[in-house]
Each structure stands twice: as structure tokens, then as C-alpha cells.
Design a binder for these strands. Sequence first.
DNA 1: ATTATATATCTAGATTTCTCGATATGTCAA
DNA 2: TTGACATATCGAGAAATCTAGATATATAAT
Lengths: 104, 104
Amino acid sequence: MKPINVFKALSNETRLNILEWLKEPEKHFPKQGAHLPKEVSYKGGVCVGDIQEKAKVSQSTVSSYLNLMQKAGLLESIRHGQWTYYRRNEEFIQQFAKYFKTEI
Amino acid sequence: MKPINVFKALSNETRLNILEWLKEPEKHFPKQGAHLPKEVSYKGGVCVGDIQEKAKVSQSTVSSYLNLMQKAGLLESIRHGQWTYYRRNEEFIQQFAKYFKTEI
DNA sequence: ATTATATATCTAGATTTCTCGATATGTCAA
DNA sequence: TTGACATATCGAGAAATCTAGATATATAAT
């Protein structure tokens, strides 16, 4: 775990928003693509296209943002057919919160 | 409180080190300048020159780093004569840790 | 007043990050 | 296999950050 990379990942308004949106996907991504039944989809995360639409940045930008956040540890992804679903890595995030409280 | 600015302040190895050193100033700045009696000095923080020496960056760099961290809320400073002493703003840092745990 | 010391501010080149459009890859449907 | 769609990767210009040296400002000592 490299704290610097986590802080860098969080040093951007759009990425910070994405992380917060993914706390409540049902709330922030109501018209989820019909690719999967809601339960499955939410459990597995939100697909790139839906995140892009809400974030209002280009497809390539959102893709690299998500990749960067995943490398930092904040997100994890699952591929389902042609879609990639991203969701929060809650375990890592809580672990990092603890690190912050005790080490920073 | 602007979280982005806090994350940006923490997105640098040197600044992160400084924040950690200031958790235990006696440990990391043993040969404190003789400007003030130890108790006073530690309570008030560590002077810029001592931090610079340990961080091994230029005087202007460390000065702007400290200023940036202060603006973000992480540090506070007190001037004593020709010296400026920087110390952690523990209240802010704890508050931010709580924000991280609940909002991020 | 002058000099010395500590810190802050200014300026600028090097590096990194941001962000896009273009293109490549992977998957599904016909 | 071909075409359509979702996502990933590439390449590049714009913007921000990094960091140093030079200079300015503030305080202290003589």
C-alpha cells in the first residue's frame, strides 16, 4: 500500500466524486444500463459508460481515472461480457482510513 | 475545509515526511536550535531551518511546502523573533481523519 | 545605522498531471 | 465473419506542480 498514490488518486475533483457516487450506486446511477439485473449489477459495481455519463469527461479520461484508482487500491473491477464494472474496495478504504488516523 | 487541498498537500513524499516527523519532534529534531528552551520550542513547533536540514530540500522549497500545508489546514505556525515554528494542527488532522472515515 | 541571520516571495525551467481525440482490443449479435 | 458496441491504450498539447537560485523582508546583535 503506497499512501502517496492514494492521496494522488484523491487529488482530483472528478475522481473524488466518482468514489463518493459509488458509495450509493442506486442513488447516483438510477437508470443503470439494462445489461444485468439490478441486484447483480449493483453488487458488481457500475459500468464505465454510466460513470462517464455522470462524470461528464471523455471516455478515455474516465477509463484511465478508474484504472488509476484501482491501482491505488481504492476500486476493484469485474468484467461481465463487454462491460467492466467498477466498485469500491471497501476493505482497502477502511484499512486506509485506519492508517490515516494512526499514522498521519 | 477543502479535502482536495489536503489530499494535494499529502501527495508529496517530502511533505508527508514532514508531517510525520512533526508527530515526534523530540525524536526527529534532536539537536534543536538553541533559540528557545526545549519545552517552549517543542510546544511551539520546529523552526524552518531545522526542517529544511532534515528534509534536504532548498530553503525556498521547504518554506513554500510549509506554507502550502498550513493553508491546507494541516499545520499552524508561530513566529518567535526571527524564527517561525511550525507544528501540526492536531485538531484539524483528527477532524479530517473522521471526515475520511465517514465521507470517503 | 550596519551587519548577520531566518524566513518569505519571486522567477523560471523541468517534470508531472490533465484531458482529449484517435486508434486498438475485446465481446456480442446477426 | 462481419458489424456494432464497450472499454482500454496511445499520443499530444495544455495546465499544474516541483524545485532551485536570486532577491526581498523581518528581526536581532553590534
